[in-house]
Write a protein that binds this DNA or RNA. Structure first.
Lengths: 143, 143
DNA sequence: TTAACTGCAAACATTTTGCAACCGT
DNA sequence: ACGGTTGCAAAATGTTTGCAGTTAA
C-alpha cells in the first residue's frame, strides 16, 4: 500500500470520495514544489495513468481549491497555476527570465496593507502581491 | 473641431496613424474614470460609432498598451481591464462588496518590494499589488 | 445499489488572426 | 498610391459542461 499524500489525507478527513484519478492528482500536487498549471498537472498525472482526462484534472483542482487544499494563482495572465495550500502565508517573486517562482514572506508589508485598507474604511480579506524581476546585471547588456 | 483627448494627443506625438476608430477609443478611455474591460470600452465606443468592431477595440487597446498609454489589469481573473497610464504610480484596493476600485499609493511598500527582490538577486521591474476588502462592520453580520 | 465521478466532445468566454475592402497621409 | 487599418468570420486558448457509462462506498 502506498503512503497517502498530504492532500489525499485531507480529502479523506473531509469525507471526499477518493477515486483513482483524485488520488493521482492529489499525489502529483503534493509532490510538486513548483506552481504547475493544469496542463502540467495533467501531463504529470498522465505519466501515472495515461487515460486520465484533462476535464477531470480541471474538475479536481477546482474541487481541491474550493476545499481550501490548493491555492490558485494567475501569474502572467495565461493559465492558472496551483500550489498546495499551507498554513504559512507567502507571496511570490517571479524571475521573468526563466519563469521561476520564488516564495517570500514580509510581515512589514502585511501590516501596511491592513492599514491602507482600514484607512479607506475596509477590512482586508485578501491580497495579491507579485513581484517581477530580472537577474541583477542582465538589464545592463539589454535582452 | 473637437478637442483632442489626452490619449490622442500622445498618439499624435508618437506619429501613430489616427483613424476615426482610434480617436473614439482614445476618447472613451480618456473620459473613463473607472477601469473598463474591452466589452465596456466597446459598448461606450459603439454609442459614438455603432459600426465599430470589437476586433478593432482589442487591437487598439493592445496598441495603446504597448505604447505605454494604457495599463492592463486582470483583477478577479475574468477579462482584462484598462486604465489610462499616468506618471503617478498607484496600486488598487478592491471593495469586493461592490466591485469598486480605490487607487492608493504607498512608498514604504514600494521600497520594501525593491529590497525583497534585491535580496533574491533580482532587479524589480514590475509588481502587482491588489488588496481586497469589505466595508468594516459587514463581516460581523455575515454575508 | 446508487449517487457521485469520469471521459468524451461540444459549448463557452475571451482574445487573436487571415483576408479582402477601405482609408489616412 | 500605398501601406496600414478595419470588419467580418474563423481560429486559438483556457476552461466548463451535458451526457452516457463507470465506480467508490
Amino acid at each position: 500500500m502506498t503512503a497517502l499524500s498530504s492532500i489525499e489525507k485531507l480529502c479523506v478527513e473531509r469525507g471526499m470520495k477518493m477515486t483513482g484519478q483524485r488520488r493521482i492528482i492529489a499525489q502529483v500536487l503534493s509532490d510538486s514544489n513548483d506552481h504547475p498549471n493544469v496542463d502540467e498537472v495533467y501531463s504529470r498525472a498522465s505519466n501515472i495513468d495515461s487515460k486520465i482526462s484533462i476535464a477531470t484534472v480541471y474538475r479536481t483542482v477546482r474541487l481541491f481549491e474550493e476545499a481550501g487544499l490548493l491555492e490558485k494563482h494567475d501569474f502572467g495572465g495565461n493559465s492558472a497555476r496551483y500550489e498546495e495550500a499551507t498554513d504559512d502565508h507567502h507571496d511570490h517573486l517571479i524571475n521573468v527570465k526563466n519563469e521561476e517562482v520564488i516564495e517570500f514572506r514580509n510581515d512589514e508589508i502585511e501590516v501596511l496593507q491592513r492599514k491602507i485598507a482600514e484607512e479607506k474604511g475596509l477590512k482586508l480579506i485578501g491580497h495579491r502581491l507579485e513581484l517581477y524581476g530580472i537577474p541583477i546585471g542582465d538589464d545592463e547588456k539589454g535582452q
